[in-house]
Structures are given as structure tokens and as C-alpha cells.
Design a protein around this nucleic acid. Structure first.
Lengths: 199, 199
DNA sequence: ATACTTTACGAACGGTCGTTCGGAAGGGCA
DNA sequence: TGCCCTTCCGAACGACCGTTCGTAAAGTAT
């Protein structure tokens, strides 16, 4: 790895941390440069514009998300076990205070960019649409495997799962409810039971 | 109403609209002054600091929320009917594009301020804690009235309701899913059925 | 109408923002 | 080693930020 790619990776890691806490509006080139003890212009040169940095951050976050959440799930057996791993990895991703001290970056950014037309919004919306599709597809597989009811609506399943996750973030980060994760797990178990095929 | 209170009210209405779209970080004194065709310093004088403006906005939003969501519910019969009105008013509040073109202000702010210690964060967290308590209390009343199962956990009920609402905002505003409201209503019906007492 | 207070304005403050540019230092290959 | 090209820096840019201040105008009460 060349010197440039090396510092670029360091910048991305630090910027992801900062963005998970402050959002894209809250991070600035100067602040990142200070934290990394380099010059504003030096850091800036790696991306050419702040918008380009933001798009790069979205890609890097998506890459890490796939690695931390999706890949473990794909190693699990198809159907219900896979969905259970998917959800627990998802929770763990959001709670991982090392890489994302401000919690899930996508949640932090959703409200910030949803009304700002532009490539950053488009990029995030596409990533999140893909994520909904992945959850939906996982539910379809669980139906195929006979784990879930045949008349289950996979889209509604993905919607409910997303709601449980968003509520967890909200309870945990804003309300500082120590039981947020347990509540999420309780809702998840209830959702799975309702989805499960009868025996 | 004196002249000062009058312009103050106009400022608040415009600032609420702007904040629902851009968040507190995204609004500035100068931008609001431009939109209202008045001077920066003239607008500023009404609040003394931006933080004071933000706190005032939270209070004003809470006042309107009570008026639009809570009061209609309190007029409905105790128990299940009240909870149904509560939820539909809540959805309507979030979709009211006139006053809040960027959707529910509290949702928009939650991620923005949850990691920023200070009076604004404290204020929002308290308002939202109260809101959770109101939902919980409504569920308790529904149990008392015999509409909901006696072993229902009201806290978990409030958590699930919050999740349905957050997912609706997320699907509607970021993913631009036209069916977001229907999905929310479907999840709500399912939640109510599970909570309902058996006959 | 007079006197006093409230309300609004324009100019200016130090600071930070993203961005540009010319040049110095250092890594990577011949 | 010598050379080039990547990497990084410092200084400066115009724009905007929240905030301060002195002052003029408008509102309000007697």
C-alpha cells in the first residue's frame, strides 16, 4: 500500500468516527486535520472536495457494514438461522463504540440528508434501498426453506425489522435507555414468532 | 399581542419549517433573516443567542405537537379508541407538509443532538421521554379498560409504536416509498391485535 | 402631543468554512 | 545515485457564521 493510500485510510477511519457523532454537517476538513495532526490542505488534497469525501465515507461505511453484518449472516445456514445472525450482527454493528462512537452512521445521516437533493443523498438512499432488499430476500429464503409462513409479506417483514432497529438507536442514544437492546431483542423474537411457520 | 411577540411568532413558524428540513445545524440567523426580509441583528435580538432560539423552537414544536396529536387523542374514549386516534394523529403530524416540510422535527433532531451534551440535547431528551411515558400510560389505560391483555408490557408497547413511526419516516423521507404510511398502518394493526384482549 | 420603551437596523468583530495555489519534502523506481 | 512524481504544507481567498454595539424608527401609554 502506497503512502497516499495509507494516510487516506487513516483519514477515512477518523472521519467515520467523527461523522457517526456529528454527521456530515458537523465534520469539517480543518477539524479532521487537527485531530490527525496534518494540514487542512494536505488532507483536502486526498479528496478534492468535501462532497467527494462524503461519498467516499458512504462507500467505506457500506464496505465495513457488509463485512461486519452481511458476511457473517451469509455464512450461517439459509433461512431463519441466517436472519437471526443478521439481526444480532446488525445490533453489534450499531453498538461497536470503537469504529462508530456515535452509533450507526446510516441512521445518523438519514435525517440529515433526506431533504438535500444531490449525489450524497442519492448514494445513501441507494445503499439503504439495497439493504431493505437484502432483508426482504432473506425473508423470502426463509419462506422457501419452510421456516416462515408462506403468506408472510417479506417487504413488511423488512419494514418491521428496520423499525425495531431504529427504535433501538433512538432509545439507546437519545433517551439513554440501558434496556434498549433488550427491548429490541424482545421485539425481534416476537416478530420471528409471528413469521414462523406453524408446526 | 405586541409587535415583538408578533414577529417572534412569525420567526418561530419559519424557523420550525427550516429546521424540519435542515436541522438545527443547517439553519442560521442570516438565512432566516433573509427569508423573512429582516436584518440579522434584528432577528437575533429576539432570542439573544442561537442556543436560546433552539430551545424556544423545541418548546414551540412540543406545544404544537400536543395540540395536534395529544389533545385529539384525549378527546377520544379511553383505551383502544384513544390509542388509535393517537397513532393516526401522530402520522398526520409527521406528514403535515405545511408546518413541517421536512417531516417530524423531533425525528430530524434526534440523531443530530444525541451526542452533543448541552441544554438542547437535555431538553429534547426530556420531551421525548415524556412522550414515551404518554404512550405507555395510554397502553396502561387500555389494559384497565379491558381492551388490552393484562400481561401486556406497556413499555414494550411504546417501544414498538415508536419503531413503527421511525420506520415510516425512514421509508417515506429517505427511501421515498409511497407505501410507507400503509406499511406503518399495517404494522400498527398487527401490534394492536397482539395487544388486544382475547374474547 | 409628549415621553418613554420596544423593536429593528447597519456596520463591524473575530472565527471558521471549503477551496486554491506555489513550492518544499520525501517515497518509489530507473 | 539520480530523477520524477506523489504527498504534504503554509498562506491566502471570499463567504458565511454568531455576536456586539450605537442609533434610528416605530410602537405604546399618559
Amino acid at each position: 500500500m502506497s503512502k497516499g493510500q495509507q494516510t487516506r485510510a487513516i483519514i477515512l477511519t477518523e472521519a467515520l468516527r467523527a461523522a457517526s457523532v456529528e454527521g456530515f454537517q458537523g465534520i469539517s476538513i480543518g477539524m479532521l486535520a487537527d485531530r490527525l495532526k496534518m494540514s487542512k490542505s494536505g488532507l483536502f488534497a486526498h479528496f478534492g472536495s468535501k462532497e467527494e469525501l462524503e461519498k467516499t465515507l458512504l462507500d467505506e461505511a457500506a464496505r465495513r457494514f457488509m463485512e461486519a453484518v452481511w458476511q457473517p449472516a451469509m455464512k450461517a445456514p439459509r433461512g431463519r438461522p441466517r436472519i437471526e445472525i443478521l439481526f444480532s450482527s446488525w445490533l453489534a454493528w450499531s453498538i461497536n463504540h470503537e469504529d462508530l462512537p456515535g452509533g450507526c452512521l446510516f441512521v445518523a445521516l438519514a435525517s440529515e440528508v433526506d431533504d438535500k437533493p444531490g449525489p450524497v443523498r442519492d448514494h445513501l438512499a441507494e445503499l439503504q434501498t439495497q439493504w431493505q432488499a437484502m432483508m426482504m430476500r432473506s425473508a423470502q429464503i426463509a419462506i422457501q426453506e419452510g421456516h416462515f409462513r408462506a403468506d408472510l409479506d417479506p417487504r413488511q417483514f423488512a419494514y418491521d425489522l428496520q423499525g425495531i432497529f431504529l427504535a433501538m438507536n433512538y432509545y439507546r442514544r437519545l433517551l439513554r435507555d440501558g434496556a434498549a437492546v433488550q427491548r429490541a431483542e424482545a421485539s425481534f423474537r416476537s416478530l420471528i414468532e409471528r413469521a414462523a411457520a406453524l408446526h
